[in-house]
Every structure is written in C-alpha cells, then in structure tokens.
Design a protein around this nucleic acid. Sequence first.
DNA 1: AGACCCGTTGTTAACGTTCACAGTCTTGCC
DNA 2: GGCAAGACTGTGAACGTTAACAACGGGTCT
Lengths: 338, 338
Amino acid sequence: MGSTRDHRPPVMADVAREAGVSHQTVSRVLNEHPNVRGETRARVLEAIGKLGYRRNLVARALVTKHSRTLGVVSFDTTLYGPASTVYGIEQAARAAGYFVSIVSLKSIDRSGVRDALDYLADQGVDGIVVVAPQRSAAEALADLPVGAPTVAVEGGEAGDVSVVCVDQVEGGRLATQHLLSLGHETVWHVRGPSDWLEAEGRVAGWRSALALAGREAPRPLAGDWSPRSGYEAGRSLASMKDVTAVFVANDQMALGVLRAFTEREVRVPDRVSVVGFDDIPESEFFSPPLTTIRQDFGAVGRHSIEVLLRQIEGQGPHVRERLVVPPSFVSRASTARP
Amino acid sequence: MGSTRDHRPPVMADVAREAGVSHQTVSRVLNEHPNVRGETRARVLEAIGKLGYRRNLVARALVTKHSRTLGVVSFDTTLYGPASTVYGIEQAARAAGYFVSIVSLKSIDRSGVRDALDYLADQGVDGIVVVAPQRSAAEALADLPVGAPTVAVEGGEAGDVSVVCVDQVEGGRLATQHLLSLGHETVWHVRGPSDWLEAEGRVAGWRSALALAGREAPRPLAGDWSPRSGYEAGRSLASMKDVTAVFVANDQMALGVLRAFTEREVRVPDRVSVVGFDDIPESEFFSPPLTTIRQDFGAVGRHSIEVLLRQIEGQGPHVRERLVVPPSFVSRASTARP
DNA sequence: AGACCCGTTGTTAACGTTCACAGTCTTGCC
DNA sequence: GGCAAGACTGTGAACGTTAACAACGGGTCT
C-alpha cells in the first residue's frame, strides 16, 4: 500500500514505474504479446494487481479505432420476439468480448433508422445489428451511408447487407399444411400488418400451402400483432359459419381469437382449429393450449453476431451472407379434425 | 467538392483549415461556446457541412472523462417486466443525450453482478442502472466498489445507492383488499420465488391486508413466475374445497392458474376469484379477462434515469434518493362475490 | 571472427479532442 | 490619447493508450 496518489486511478505509466519497466512493456503484457519474458510479465502483473490498475478502454479505442462495442437498433423491445432476439444478441456479443449499445425505436421509419445509425456511428461502434422486421426499416437500410459493417435481422432482401432471419414462409406453410392434413377444407388467416416482412412471409406460406392443395385462399383478416386485434378478428370469424380452421400470425393475436371464440361459445378445437406463431412462453397455457410455430429467437441473435463478427474481424471482400433459421412445429391442443 | 483526402473521415483540423480558423475555434462552435463571432460560426458550420464532419466522441471522452454512456445491468430481459423497464430506461436516456450499454445476466448472483459492474466501469460509463429485483443482486450492490453513480431499480434497501421501485406491498394490499371487499372469507396466495424482493413485497402486502381484516393467512403456494408453476399451484388449489379467492403474484402464473382451473372445471369467477399482478398486454384477453395490479414500468425506467442524471450532473453531496411508484388496480372479469 | 537473426525492451510519435493560457482587436471611458 | 475591460481567436499541452522503430544482447551460421 501507499502509492503516490490514491485520488487518481492509476494509469499505465504508474504500473510501469511500479514494475520497473516501460509503459510499452505493460501494454505488451496486457495485449498478450508473445515476446515478453516470463519474469517480466509476472512483475508487471503483480504491479497491476497491487495498484488495482484497469486499462482505459477509451484511450485504447482512440488509437486502435476499435471500440469493441456493437450497436443494436431495434423496434419496440417490449414485444417478446424482439426482446428475445436482442437478448440473444447481447449474450453472444458479450461472449465474444463486445459491448452492446442499444437503440430502441418507437416507430421504424426511414429517418428514425437513419438517425439511429448515425447516432451509433458517432459513438464509434465496430458493427451494427438492425432488427428490421418492417419493410420501411429494410428499405432505410438499403441506402445506408454507414461505414460500419451491418447485419439485418429479419430484413428481407435488404440492399447490400447480410441478413439473418427465420424462414417465415416455411412457418406459414407448416401451420397451414398441418391444418389441411387434419382434413380441413380450407384455412383462414389472421395476418400481421402489411408493412411487416414477417407478416408477408407468413401469408405467402399460407397461400402456397393452400395452392399446393388446390384450395381457394379466403380473404385474410388484418391484425396488428396485438391481442386486441386478434380479438376483433376472432369476433368476425365467429360469426362466419364455414370457418373450421384458422392460422393466426402470432400467439398474442391467437389469444385474442381464442377469447372471442370463448365469448361466442365457439369451441376450440371442436368446432374451429387454431394455430399460432412464435411459441411465447404463455401459449402452452392458453385455453386450450395453443398449437403453434416456434421461432428460435436465441439462435437468430447468436447467428447475427456470428455473421457480424465474421464481417468485422475477417478481412476479404465483404461477402454478403444470408442465413435462414428454420421454424418448427409445436403440437398442442388447439387443433383437431373437423 | 474535392477535399484533399476522401478516404479518411475528416477531423477537426480539416474543418479548421477549410474554414480558415484554428481547431480550437471549431471546437468552440461545436460546444456552443458563447464567444464566437456570428460570421465565424457560420463559416465553420458551413465547412462542417461541406466536409461531412462528425465529431469523434471517443477522443472527446478521453479528455473530458465523460462518455455520455449509461450502463444497464438487468436480469433476463426476455420477461415483460424487465424488458419494459429497460425500454423505458433507454428511451429516457437517449432523450437526455446518453447512450445505453446493456448487460443481461442469466443469473444474478454476487459475482455476476460484480463482473457486470466491472465490465461497464471498464468501458467508462458515466452511470449505472441496476435492475436488481433479486435479493442477491441488491446485496451485491451493497458492497459495490464502483466509482460511477448508481441507481437500483426494485432494489429494496440497497446499501448506499438510490432506489426507484414500485410499491409492491401496496400492490399486494390492493389485490387482497379488493377480494376481501367482495366478501371472500380469506385470500390464498401464489407467491414468487423467495429470493425476489418483489415477491416478498407482494406477500407482505397480502398478509397485512388479511391481518387488517382480522383474517388468518393461509400458507402461500410457491411459484417461480412461470406459467407452468402457476399451473401447478392451480392444480393444488383446485383440489381444495374452501378456496374462493386467489391472489397470484404475476399475470403469467395467473394464466397457469386459470388453465388448471379450467381443466378441473373450477369456474372463474363463479367459484373462485383470481387477481394477478403486472397487467401484461395479454391479461385483458385471458379467459376470463384478468383483474390485476398494474405496474408502470415505463415510469420506473424514466424515474431511474432522472435520479441517475441528477446524481451525475448535479454536484452536491451525493444524496441517496428513494422514489416509489404507486401501482394501480385494474378491474376486469376474474373476480366476483363468493 | 563477422554477419545476421530473433527475442526482448525502450523511445518517440501518433490518435482527435478539450483545457489553460496567451495573444489580438475592439470598444468605452476618462 | 491612453488604458483597461471585454470579446474573440490562436498556440501549446494534456488525456492514456498503441504503433513504429530503434537498440541491445546472445545465439547461430558461414
């Protein structure tokens, strides 16, 4: 104990003095440079421990031009999907030794995305993950001026950037085929908002499965992902006599549909079968437990970081990757033969 | 057009040269120093625009010792509560011109919290918000070695740091009093994990309301916040004959309870009344729609930033604040007279 | 023996900003 | 006309790190 000044946190020079070496040698020890004698290294390490030295990452970032910080732009991290994705991203990033700086947009429009990108670029992030489920976000990304490597999550055919996404079309197909295979004549659909790529993908999958089976696609009902919109769609569906199977574009809306059916005493799955999408933790305990399509958000987050790091750390000519995570079918009690 | 080198982003010196002033004057314009002639300012601004100059925040942080970045430590941001809180924090922080760096812990133990704090301190954050709903987290905070100002959210009597929280005791009381006022003899409770302060607070509120009414408190059933644990508690409750009212410590578990009751054909609210906690977006569409206690997570997030900024920006002798956000009662269809 | 390489260490100069201080040019006032 | 006060601007030195290069010593090869 008893360093010269305890009121200022120690810097590299203090450690160097303590260990009787130059500050550059301290730097070498910290950066695990191979050419440092074992005994010297030990002395430096001891001095570091004694002084409680912590390297100043800001100074380091200034000279290396690498902040070891990744930026994440997301839309409404209150929703289960984005929240889980961001969680996966953060975990993977930290495991790789990166910090994560987050910007949550209230609405994703062109300028909002652009501002967020600028904001992060200002901070000097090494790379950016944009969770861009809406078409407008994907488009904003297309004319991106950002220097930093970027990966889009759920970003459709987003311009020049790499994309990691769940195969929504396949998910829609899975749900619809399951219902058809049970013997339903056709399958109705409560869709998500039209500016969401995920909503479009699920519609496309639904249509293609119906087409493959030679069935006419009924007019889809519009929802906005919220339970309330599902509830309203459910009331419409309940009043139609020929509805026996419904594919709802997410579990929250499916909950609303179930609620509407319960109120109108439309039994599920006896009279109508329902399939959801996402597999939120609650859906297993809906009444009845919801058959749904699971998205592995954690995997999406992890993959997006892998792709991004490959782009940051790997050299080579900026390959644009596209990684698709398959959804999976989860069978529960909300579907049955007609 | 045609600056000397387009391949390197422009720095202050480039702007200075372009505008025919010194770099210091550019700095003054950027920092809105009053003593700059209007015409000079205009010239500098024009040069900035022409060159597309953006100030390097890393270099700035090095000299000012302020990164304008706030750290957030949270536990499982997949859950609705933490996710909403973090969202509120991020929005408020950005509005105040701060970046937000997030660390999501998988498990909150002493060393985990400490590592996260170190990690953020290394990065040079100006302040830290710890969303510490678990006792272990709060304790870890008690012996905090961090130099940065810190605020705990839901942190109980967390050592020396300021705390922002929802009045859980009041919430538990509200729920219980509502059930008692309907005429129920007593109220059962499905509680959260015992190492969560929120769970303890709700239990305390429940007990105090029962005590005030001169009723015996039944033995609480243990849950872990998950719908499944609620389901299991619900199965137990369904097999007891004298249960007419249940206060469940969160909405997810309440969903599980409702599911168990439905399976056993225990009618809600006809035979048993149920009250939840949180008011997640789904609970309005449970069957039946859930009467619950709403927590304003957004307000908690905003307040925590206010308190933190007051601590960072305000001088003065580190006052330890404690800010309590009141919960509110939301009446729906899951409760009735016995 | 001399040249050369390599492991190890130190010295000096960036990185791009702000701070402290020293100028210069007005302006007002006696 | 001189002088001080203030507005405005410039110069140099930090901030704490890494990069580039030089220097030294000992070993190997010819």
